[in-house]
Write a protein that binds this DNA or RNA. Structure first.
Lengths: 302, 302
DNA sequence: CTTCGGTGATGCCTCGTGAGTATCAATTTT
DNA sequence: AAAATTGATACTCACGAGGCATCACCGAAG
């Protein structure tokens, strides 16, 4: 069934009415609106007919608002002001000067590239609000596919279908040990030296590909690792290592500056490699222009 | 200088846009709006031109909102809903079914006729809000002249130019005495019996005419009264009398029910007479219809 | 009392533009 | 490959907003 066009008046009527209500004078209002007085009179009459209530009393010498007119004037004013602001707001939004961008990130991102990006971005686009959210790679990939976030800083496993990515960091992992650990004396370590060490890792579901590659590296080195804890978010792993519960893998960049009570040692030979990328939906039909602004800072010439 | 007509689009555009944003389908939206599809396409294109931002992406097979379109949809929805409600509200207001009425009253009115009027009025017009305010006669007359109140219950002095009034009460005053006062023994009193009694009156400025008529009545009885206190609002006078500070004039109606600790005695012979009227501006050009509703209850067939 | 100036409403005409019909172009479905 | 679906375009028509001239009414000034 047809949804009837529900307004028998137009914005024009409201603008005309506002001017007459301001001036209480048809001729002056008509002049201010750059129309002839008869046209104005007729539009007001139409509006009164459409609303079913008289808005003015016209005794030839004086125009006054009726009760209904006063009420309408109060309602119309904020509506017209609001609508007048719309085009500018939309244009700013379309040009990526304003808006919001949902960004997810992993602990590694926050420990390395993200702070600098955020500082630069807020300087360049102070009117865009970021909604930042730490979450693991697997969650980010699902959120990107579902359109819940605009972009994410994560650790790509294999390929990322439908996503465009740009690599921000690629480093061979080292090992983070308690400072008083026996192995902390060696300047560098190999995986097979670490057979007896309990490990603090992240839950496998958070990035199964990387997790499995870590286990495969152990396997190639002839070692079966003992997993002591699986912890998230990432920052907590450092606390557990400091507490002596085990060791964990870490990128050199992430270990700078080195927290108290722990020691970082590079790995010789084969070792897991961490990649940090920024990813966003490729070929999105209606990208938030604000996202383009963010990518211009976070993934330039991408 | 002419104030340019500031909108290059109309409500029609917004209604059309809302429907397309809902359905994301030009043909279905056109059908719902009871217009042909090409007309709808052109209106949307005009709106996009006017706003300076694309609102939809039309790849032949799928229509989607752009970022600007999403933002506009959020803004437009409440505006259209608000405007759709306006005609009904204005009609109700014009028909006196809704609105507000500023009413002032004196203590005598509240002690006699007003509670019944309010009860009946709220039953008949539950959607009209009254703004009630106790104030003395002189203040009410000024407020009526200034248009600050719609009507008042007051005590007319002489004539009330420009006002229409209707008498609600006219009574010869009696005297309110402390219950333990010597004169309380007599069933009725004359003014000259009361020569020694200190009086609790109201400030003369609040109703000079009545005040002077009281003094004139004393003078005719050969008595020069002693004014102990001038107090307002009226209800406080009863407390002062009970406290033994003096006597006061009071209408019989006002003395029912009689408060604790005081005694009411009628006056024989000449005595001040109180009149209570309801008054409102005569020949007002734009009366609040809600006032007419109130008068229909408070001053019927007036 | 008459005249004049100012005001909003009315009649008539013109022209812009919104809407309908037919059709096209592009893409998906069969 | 053909058919169906969908939004845009071309063309025409008709409604109505706006302009001009004028009226009707009222107050002020003489």
């Amino acid at each position: 069934m047809p949804r009837e066009y529900q307004f028998s008046y137009e914005l024009r009527h409201l603008v005309y009415f506002r001017e007459v209500a301001r001036t209480l004078h048809f001729r002056k209002a008509a002049e201010a609106l750059a129309v002839a007085q008869p046209a104005l009179s007729r539009q007001i009459a139409q509006l009164e007919l459409a609303l079913g209530a008289a808005l003015f009393t016209r005794s030839r010498r004086k125009v006054e608002l009726t009760a209904a007119g006063r009420a309408l004037a109060e309602r119309v004013e904020p509506i017209l002001r609001g609508l007048a602001a719309v085009p500018g707001e939309l244009r700013a939004l379309a040009e990526g000067e304003t808006g919001r961008v949902q960004v997810s990130f992993t602990g590694l991102a926050m420990a390395t590239v993200l702070p600098g990006i955020l500082r630069e971005f807020h300087r360049a686009y102070p009117r865009i609000r970021l909604e930042l959210n730490e979450s693991p790679t697997s969650t980010q990939l699902a959120a990107l596919a579902a359109g819940e976030i605009a972009c994410g800083f994560f650790h790509p496993d294999t390929t990322t279908p439908g996503l465009k990515t740009r690599e921000l960091l690629r480093e061979k992992n080292g090992v983070l040990l308690p400072a008083d650990h026996a192995l902390a004396a060696s300047p560098s370590l190999r995986l097979r030296d670490l057979a007896a060490v309990p490990w603090v890792l992240f839950p496998r579901t958070h990035n199964p590909g990387f997790y499995d590659r870590v286990l495969a590296a152990f396997s190639r080195a002839g070692v079966t690792p003992r997993i002591a804890e699986e912890v998230w978010p990432r920052a907590n792993a450092v606390g557990l290592v400091r507490a002596g519960l085990g060791a964990t893998f870490m990128c050199p960049s992430e270990a700078r500056p080195l927290p108290e009570g722990v020691t970082f040692r590079p790995l010789e030979g084969p070792a897991p490699e961490s990649r940090l990328v920024i990813g966003w939906r490729m070929a999105e039909m209606n990208p938030e222009p604000a996202l383009a602004s963010f990518l211009a800072v976070a993934a330039p010439e991408g």
